[in-house]
Amino acid sequence: MSAALYHRSLLESIVIYTVLGVAVLLAIFPFLYMLSLSLQSDADLFSGVPVIIPSQLQFSNYIDIWERAPFARFVLNSFIIAGGITALHLIFDPLIGYVFAKMQFPGKGAMFAAVLSTLMLPFFIRMIPLYILTAEMGWLNTYQGLIMPFAMSAYGIFLMRQFILPIPDELIEAARIDGAGELRIFFTVILPQIRPALATLGLLTFVFQFNEFLWPLIVVSTTEMRPITTGLTLFNQEFFTAWNLTATGGVLLFLPSFVLFLFTQRYFIRSVMMSGMK
């Protein structure tokens, strides 16, 4: 609403900033509490009164946790899995998007509709046959078993197609006349034009794949292949652990997303606002 139409009374301002203050506090507090817990000693934790600022910062929690479970390996696995999936998305989503946006061939409409229809087939519904398929391929407890089911997405293909459509056909025709093949056109003409969209796709894919919990829970049974999401959860279930060490693991899982968000925050938010508008 434009500022000209906006006359706020003092009371309204107070109400608005109170609401926002409460919302911000609610959003932040659990993180601060986790950070505080991660630095607390058992004495603080079981003192019977709420401790927000630990009596002494027990940084040794951050050393202890690496000794209790292979967290370094968990973190590495998460990066390999989320990174692998993101790389595949960045290659295939725009390539398939390009074919649907700029090439002519019989059956194009039907095939594009088939791709979009997969948005209606949620992962949970496909979970049981996917597990059996992965087991039959011998891919349980492997990176490819964790990566391949998420190698492309209809949503990513759709998003890339939307960004490639407005690129002028003349640009592509000119390259074709110069004798460039379709792949060459894709890499030298198309990709440079959609760099911001690629960044959006990569960022969103990485962050959400980093959080994936259900699939690794099902297909990974060995400790060393666990990503940090299931690694941390099963670590807590297998060894009874007090909240302070659990919180330390939580901070480790939280840190990559937080750092990524901190540096790309404005861009990230713009991407989300844009990707939600159809």
Partner: peptide, 27 residues
């Protein structure tokens, strides 16, 4: 912008962390 970013942030973290934080708060 800062307020939007802060309120949005919980959306991009794993539910594993969400569960851990709230279970410890609600213990």
């Amino acid at each position: 912008n800062m307020i939007r970013a802060i309120i949005f942030f919980p959306y991009i973290i794993s539910f594993v962390i969400v569960a851990l934080m709230w279970k410890s708060l609600l213990d």
